[in-house]
Structure formats: structure tokens, C-alpha cells
Amino acid sequence: MGSVKSNKIISLPSPSSASRRIEYPFWFGGAASCIACTVSHPLDLTKVRLQTTHGVNKASTIYTMIQIIKTEGILGLYSGLSASILRQITYSTMRFGVYDKLKNLISKNQEQLPFTKKILCASIAGSIGGAFGNPADLVMVRMQNDAKLPLENRRNYKHALDGLYRIVKEDGFRGLTRGIGPNVNRAILMNSSQLATYDQTKQMLLSTKIFKDNIITHFVSSVMAGLVATTVCSPVDVIKTRVMNSSSQAKVI
């Protein structure tokens, strides 16, 4: 008997499709940031309180948090949470979405992208996100620091939308751009150091063949990115916070 030949064709994935990056919806980064800010908000509020203290401030983070709880209650640590969430919806959604789109545009779906190009994409995305999220950032800083001010100087915004309305009513639409210069500079530094460092660290870890593309690798990359970004952005972040917290009559350098 003759041998039976199979006519079944087995299709193999092409190299280009195997190396193609997975594209996620542009809002994934913003949604994740909203969830994260509900956890990190007390620390962010404490940071703002420390940054707006003039002169030599010897208070520690823990001491400042304890003082906030003593004077304002446990809910005092969540002052300005609505503005913080609005900031993530605008600023983080924009910067993550633009960064991912730019990477895909420049790399043309190639798996690897040079570190310098990652920094370029992150810087452009950061500048756009910083400008877009400036109004929410402005309200957030003011709400977080309001309880620290004397009673006659407090703004008493009810929530983020009330803060935006009050700023427009009292200072006009131009008031929403207060601090936009240092905020955009901070966003550029934050994005270029954070996102580029995250991608580069992840790429280096995966190249060792020891790490796999799982939550452990993502966590290690995120920690490294956070350390680098916080160190780089701290000076500009202090300037941004003080400018936004100042009154409309204060002179901006």
C-alpha cells in the first residue's frame, strides 16, 4: 500500500507578529493611577504639607502625619482626594496614553526601543499631560494644604469641581494655569525618568533570562522607576507646590 500523505497545512506565527507589542486601551494607565492614588494620598498630602513649610523643617513624615490626625482626624489624611482622582484622570491618562502611542509610532511595532528614544517619548508625553492636568493639580495642592492655613486664608473648596469653579470665578480661566510652568517641567522630568526607567529596567531584567514577564518583574521595575523619578523631580516639585498654593496676588518668578 502506498503511503498516505496529509494535506493538512500547519501555519506558524510570523516573526513580526510574535514580536509585536501588546497594545492596551489608552485609559488603562489613568485607571490604575486612580486606584493607586487612593492608597498613596495620605503620603502625598503629607508631602505637600512639608513642602509648604518655609525655612528649615525638621519634622519627619511620620510626625507630620500624626499631627494631621490629631488636629483634623483620620479623614484629614484624605483632604483633597476628589482633586487627586481628577488629577489622575486628566494628567496620568494623558501621559500614559501619549507615551504608549509615541512608542508605537517611533518603533513601528518593534519590540526594543533605544533608551534615548524612550526618554524623548516620555518627555513629550509628560509635557502634554502636565499642561492638561494642571487645573486639577492646582485644586489638589490647595485642598491638601488648606487646613494648615489660618482660618481667614482658607479657601474651603467643597470638592474638586467646586475648586475649579471658584478659581474661574475669582481669577478667571487664566487662574487655572497658575503654576503651569514648573508643573510642566516637573511632568517632563517625572515622565522621562519614571517611564523610561521602568521600560529600561524591565528590558534589562527580562534579558537576563532569570526574570519572566510577570508581576515580580513589574514590581521591581516600578520600585526602581519610582526611586529615580522621586529623586529627580523633588526640587521642581517643591517649587510647583509653593507656586500653586500661593494667592493670586503673589508674584510668580
Rank of each mutant, 00 (worst) to 15 (best):
S3G: 09
D213N: 13
R166H: 07
L120I: 09
K212N: 10
I66Y: 13
G76R: 08
F96W: 07
I35A: 15
G55W: 12
D171H: 14
K108W: 09
P114F: 15
R166E: 09
N57K: 01
Y165K: 03
S222M: 08
Q200G: 00
L50W: 09
A187N: 10
L12F: 12
T46Y: 05
D162S: 01
N183C: 06
R166M: 12
P135I: 04
V243I: 15
P114H: 15
I124W: 14
P42R: 09
Q200H: 12
K202Q: 09
G226H: 08
A131H: 06
S92F: 13
Q88E: 12
K58T: 10
A59C: 02
I188P: 01
L12S: 07
E23A: 10
K158W: 05
S40W: 15
R95V: 06
N134C: 02
Y91P: 01
Y63H: 13
L195E: 02
Y63P: 00
G126Q: 12
V4P: 00
H218I: 01
M94A: 11
L138H: 15
L161N: 01
R154Q: 14
K117E: 09
A31K: 00
I89P: 00
V252N: 04
V220N: 01
R142H: 05
A83D: 06
K8M: 12
M204S: 11
Y157E: 06
Q194M: 10
S33R: 04
S19P: 02
Y157R: 06
T231E: 04
